[in-house]
Design a protein around this nucleic acid. Structure first.
Lengths: 123, 123
DNA sequence: ATATATTACCACCTTTTTGTAGTATTTACA
DNA sequence: TGTAAATACTACAAAAAGGTGGTAATATAT
């Protein structure tokens, strides 16, 4: 969607661009719209548009919203009581690794990817 | 295993320490031994020992071996032909994010975790 | 030798994730 | 107003991941 210059994209259009089954893609789009990333409009000439400017949608925000904040927030060993004050052996390492990765992902927005595509990317 | 000072650890012992079902843990241990991280011995007094010094087992090496090198190596968008010369829009970002995370994980060994536990960790 | 404590192997069950089907609803346009 | 082109909802099917059960193989101790 970000790459196509369409005002509005239908699921069918996206299905033709991406190798994702129609039906499944439709459901994913509905999910994304419930999560607030895109807005949907029904009926003929309906489809999806981004709910916010591309500059405001970071990859980190997508992951957090789609996966649920817990996924990136919780203890990698699955301990309930693992916290800063009472950390598991993996805590420090995991926080460090996660932070570094999310750092990159927070600083990359859909706008950045679109620009990249425009300049020199292929797929 | 790293934390316990045992020469050899049985699956039953580990099951009591960790909250992992006996049977399942046994299978995981067998898998790990096939992958070469640990060595198993059968029979009474049997069990598992590390195949290498703890200093030589990094978290990154465990992930790579257990998950398969592809998981961390392949295109996050699933494109077959995504390579350095013909990158997808996510390529650069993903390589950067991965590299940073693997950097931390490569520099942490089981020995490091064991020392951490000795010093001040709880679980 | 026999009983016991262990891992190994193979097939199965359960849960989660991924994908499909049918039908209803909404909107545009002739 | 009727038809076509779209999304929405609900339930189900298939595949993958997580977990269990039964039994065989192996080694130790008595």
């Amino acid at each position: 969607m970000a790459i196509s210059e369409n005002e509005i994209s239908s699921a069918e259009f996206l299905h033709n661009k991406l190798e994702i089954p129609r039906r499944y893609l439709r459901r994913l789009m509905t999910d994304l719209s419930r999560l607030g990333f895109i807005r949907s409009s029904k009926g003929r000439k309906g489809g999806f548009v981004f709910a916010k400017p591309l500059e405001e949608i970071s990859l980190a925000s997508i992951i957090k919203t789609v996966e649920g904040a817990e996924v990136m927030g919780s203890c990698i060993l699955g301990h309930q009581k693992c916290k800063e004050e009472q950390p598991c052996v993996m805590h420090e390492t995991w926080v460090e690794a996660k932070t570094k990765m999310l750092d990159t992902l927070s600083n990359t927005t859909l706008y950045d990817l679109k620009e990249k595509k425009k300049r020199f990317q292929v797929s």
